[in-house]
Write a protein that binds this DNA or RNA. Structure first.
Lengths: 247, 247
DNA sequence: TCCCTCGTTTCATTGTATGAAACCTCGTTA
DNA sequence: TAACGAGGTTTCATACAATGAAACGAGGGA
């Protein structure tokens, strides 16, 4: 375990403090210290530094810490003209209108996946998909697509990750991925989320590299397996068109 | 100048590196080193740390650095149920529909202001207002509202800031702020942005504290001074209703 | 081929991040 | 009212972790 020594401890700790704010938006100092396992005084100094640069602010009133506007600033300037999450939006809306279900766009980030864009269904009962969500790369139709069409090295890295569910039979899983490559899309039925089902297809850019997964998801009672297979061609086609838009 | 010594240098530097990514999304290592004035090897270590935690990634192909998805994740989970930028959205849309111009929501962040929400006009010629933009707290209708209805201490801090434009006559500016308090709203005509004009009103929560500024802005040829004064009552009223929604 | 630029790695040195402890400042309880 | 406890803040000696000079490697123009 002589791993990466070329990293700055104080910065790592500060980023860990920042990461506390995913999921819970208001933290007290001692609370954070407990969570990240550091001394109060250390966390105090880190928070002062983060506050200094506008990455966190203190709620006047509760006196607790929350994220500052620097985060918003960074995330909004992140999008470039060729940002997939912008370029692909019209096609995603088209697909949502055609199928009436929520459409999501996922990219792989190391051994997880992140929903970088979503267009919500307008039905009264619908799948709600918040942008920015970080999900496991093992279960769910999108996960399987992201792995099936990835380099073998990526696949191996994901399956070797400590977060990989040991319960999954790797041989059977790999076979499933082969099927998905052959078929061109993946489905999942109450696999990650009870009551939800999804169909996903790969988005491959003009250079032939997979850059994202396109998923349509909804309540499982509207998306029985045969329904999903009927929807699949439209999704695969949409994904193809999207890929053609990307460098 | 014995200022704050209670902050962590390495973390400050890392955050400065992160802040490079506002405005320009792709950076090489040496480029960043030049910008922040640090040694290549130091920046290299900082970037490795940021990359480790997913705050930056390296574009495969260009090999340059850009923001990672952790930023998206943080910014999306930032919104709480009582987040003004969500709660006030319906009322902002109503106002946009009533006046047909772009509606923005600003909060003060130290000696600047940040656009935390916007609803775009649907006219062919329109003011485009990106969320997350950080603007000076001196010029523009929203700036004047944010200062006019703030504590005197806040006002003083902003005007003492090195970024404050020395060209502005402070006495005249202060008098203008008094007028704005008396009238209840502010206007600006090609003040910050050539060709743009705006009306802004304060959003004051139920405790009587100003929490944001509501602004309507558009091309200056559609928003002559007399037009703005005609629009003002609707904007002031909308801002009042919004304030009533906030703790 | 030779530069020149850019990124990576090493390493001695020092300065700086660290955490224990003491110190505040509230709000709560006896 | 006083005593308490649970936050948060500040101080300080010490060790060790961040630093930047320098050397190295890798492309890619010229």
């Amino acid at each position: 375990m002589d791993e990466e020594k070329r990293t700055v401890r104080a910065v790592e700790r500060a980023l860990d403090v920042l990461l506390c704010f995913t999921g819970k938006s208001e933290w007290g100092l001692s609370e954070i210290a407990g969570k990240v396992g550091l001394h109060k005084s250390t966390v105090h100094r880190l928070l002062a530094t983060l506050e200094n640069r506008g990455f966190v602010i203190r709620d006047e009133g509760t006196e607790k810490y929350r994220l500052g506007f620097r985060i918003l600033e960074l995330s909004s300037n992140q999008s470039r003209p060729d940002d997939p999450s912008i370029v692909l939006l019209p096609e995603m809306e088209r697909l949502r209108n055609e199928l009436g279900e929520t459409v999501s766009l996922y990219v792989r980030d190391r051994t997880e996946r992140v929903r970088i864009q979503a267009v919500q269904s307008e039905q009264p009962i619908r799948r709600v998909a918040p942008v920015g969500a970080r999900l496991p790369l093992s279960v769910g139709a999108s996960s399987k697509v992201l792995l099936a069409f990835a380099d073998p090295a990526v696949r191996a890295e994901a399956m070797a990750d400590p977060a990989w569910p040991q319960a999954l039979d790797k041989a059977a899983y790999t076979r499933q991925l082969e099927d998905i490559v052959a078929r061109g899309y993946a489905t999942s039925f109450e696999e990650r989320e009870p009551g939800a089902a999804a169909v996903a297809a790969p988005i491959v850019n003009r250079s032939g590299k997979q850059v994202a997964a396109l998923a349509v998801s909804g309540p499982s009672n509207r998306m029985a397996p045969e329904v999903m297979h009927r929807q699949a061609p439209a999704i695969v086609e949409a994904a193809k068109r999207m890929g053609a838009l990307l460098g």
